[in-house]
Design a protein around this nucleic acid. Structure first.
Lengths: 332, 332
DNA sequence: GCAGAATCCAAAGATTGCCTTATAACTGAG
DNA sequence: CTCAGTTATAAGGCAATCTTTGGATTCTGC
């Protein structure tokens, strides 16, 4: 088996015309060159150099091998360079999958700042709801999945050191609590980068009695209202929240189109609870917004996170993108 | 530094989709694959494989590296194959330099038989007198030089085992005797393959008194003749031979054109001594040939040999050509 | 749900390979 | 003939590699 090392030696010998000079060029001793050449000649089973008194020349086999060596070593350098470009954030691509709200709020500034600092790294974005995004992540169709979950307790999830060889146990332990509390989101084998605790905002018709109550309401105060729900996952969360507050919401309308929710509330058809992030890109005409507290008194939040695989967290471009996303979310 | 071994492992992993399968394909154990991949990832400083639960996929860097690996490994295989073709006598070229007489007698059948047995090996032929042929050999312009010398003693030169690692000392010792006797031919650092002891033939005009003397004459019997000499080297040899026989030849004509020599002798302008090989391609019209004995009574001979460098003697095509030349000469 | 098969990683021991140092032999030039 | 430069060889130390062994995880089939 011919190794690249052999070809490097052969090339140096051919270039310099002597073993000693080749050794100097490659930064090793002359016997090393001598042995490498002998090993190469043994592996191809034919002489490669012809010593004639003082000078030395390549045999025909040596010339043929050298002819190939240049191309092979050039290909090797090209490969090294291209991989180094990816590792050095001068090239590469990060495929992002995000749910709609995030892709219109968190993602754009993060991508813009990544492009400014590292123009060679390209980012692609596909929209998908968290369950599908997770499947794409596990299936190798993307590097980062943005998702959210609704922790029902106030304690913040322990923060795993993002992207630097976090042991499996630590991650599992960190996610254990949240995992047990929110069904269907087993992230124990993933690297979870918390981005944002997105507070839930109550939407009331403009003339609602609680609209002026200092901007904060208990969920139980809305027990008798008609409700307008969002996406299936949001609806499920709403029901859980209300159950914790001791009632079951009457839901007459459900839509995952946030402007529609606002319109329905403004028309006096009910009240709603939306993540604040979702409201950012919707003009809240004819509605009042109030903060919502859970039964325990703490504000209700939706936790927005970026997910990736442990191996992918080691990829520089992925780690950088995660950093940018965290930075983009941090200001909110 | 990326080594070919790494790329072979990467390719096997990518092809099979698992470390274990790659290990089976490459005939080693799975931890070996695991370690090689880890070493490769370390050398390029970025992850190359992404493990997602059961399956595994290449990262972007891995895909890029694999893309190059295919070409690099293909180039390596091509190089190995081409060199193996040369080593296996399915390809290659042997450059022969020969003096005119040999190139018209010894060389053609040898080349023909080599071409029959190994059609891939090409032979090129250039004509040059021994001194120049030797220079070309030492200068790397040919692989085999055909030459001759005139040993003045009868003892045959010891036969070095042709082309199989003959130690320097043995060669030097074998050639020592001849070296001292024939000036200007230091072949102690060469591999000498004796081809032929070419007997010297006397050329006499058809009616010469000695023409019928049983076909053999002593050189001294021709002391009083006019002489026609051949090439410069041959002329020098003739003078030496005659000196040993006790006289100095009167040389009125000298030409290295053998038909001319025959013509001159036939015209009765003198006598000549030629190697028998040289006479083979000349029609001896009007002349009588007799064998020539030196002063010591032994027949005078010209020794025809093939010369090559020690390293070149290890090259299969060169060794084969030497064999064919010896075979071609053996029948004479 | 629970063995079973298959996969990967990690640690440890043995082997192999590579490099260096030191020495000897050879070549060509002054 | 000596000297500078080169290569080959032998021996020692070091690093890399492979294998073995054991343990953890995942998917599969019952």
């Amino acid at each position: 088996m011919i190794e690249a090392r052999h070809l490097r030696v052969l090339r140096a010998v051919a270039r310099t015309g002597s073993f000693s000079a080749a050794a100097r060029e490659l930064g090793c001793t002359q016997p090393a060159i001598s042995q490498q050449m002998k090993a190469l000649e043994k592996s191809v089973d034919t002489p490669l150099v012809v010593r004639s008194g003082r000078g030395m020349q390549l045999s025909e086999a040596g010339r043929v091998l050298l002819k190939h060596a240049t191309g092979i070593l050039a290909g090797l350098s090209a490969a090294e360079e291209e991989v180094a470009a990816i590792a050095g954030l001068r090239a590469g691509r990060v495929r992002l999958v995000s749910f709609p709200t995030a892709s219109s709020t968190l993602v754009p500034p993060a991508v813009a700042r990544l492009r400014d600092s590292h123009p060679g790294v390209r980012v692609s974005l596909v929209e998908a709801e968290p369950p599908e995004a997770l499947a794409m992540l596990r299936g190798g169709e993307c590097e980062i999945a943005l998702a959210f979950r609704y922790p029902q307790c106030d304690g913040a999830v322990a923060l795993p050191a993002p992207g630097h060889g976090t042991p499996r146990e630590a991650r599992a332990e960190a996610n254990l609590e949240a995992q047990q509390l929110t069904a269907g989101t087993d992230w124990s084998d993933l690297v979870v980068t918390p981005l944002l605790d997105d507070p839930m905002v109550g939407l009331l018709p403009a003339g609602h009695p609680l609209a002026g109550s200092g901007g904060a309401v208990e969920l139980a105060e809305l027990a008798g209202e008609q409700w307008i729900a969002g996406c299936p996952q949001c609806r499920g969360h709403l029901v859980e929240l209300c159950a914790a507050a001791g009632f079951e919401p009457r839901i007459d309308f459900a839509t995952d189109d946030y402007p529609a929710v606002v319109g329905l509330v403004a028309a006096g058809l009910g009240v709603a609870v939306l993540p604040r992030l979702a409201l950012q890109s919707v003009r809240p005409d004819g509605v009042s917004t109030v903060s919502v507290r859970t039964a325990s008194g703490a504000p209700a939040v939706r936790q927005v996170v970026a997910l990736t695989l442990p191996d992918l967290a080691e990829v520089p471009a992925v780690a950088l993108m995660l950093e940018r996303l965290a930075g983009s979310a941090g200001g909110r």
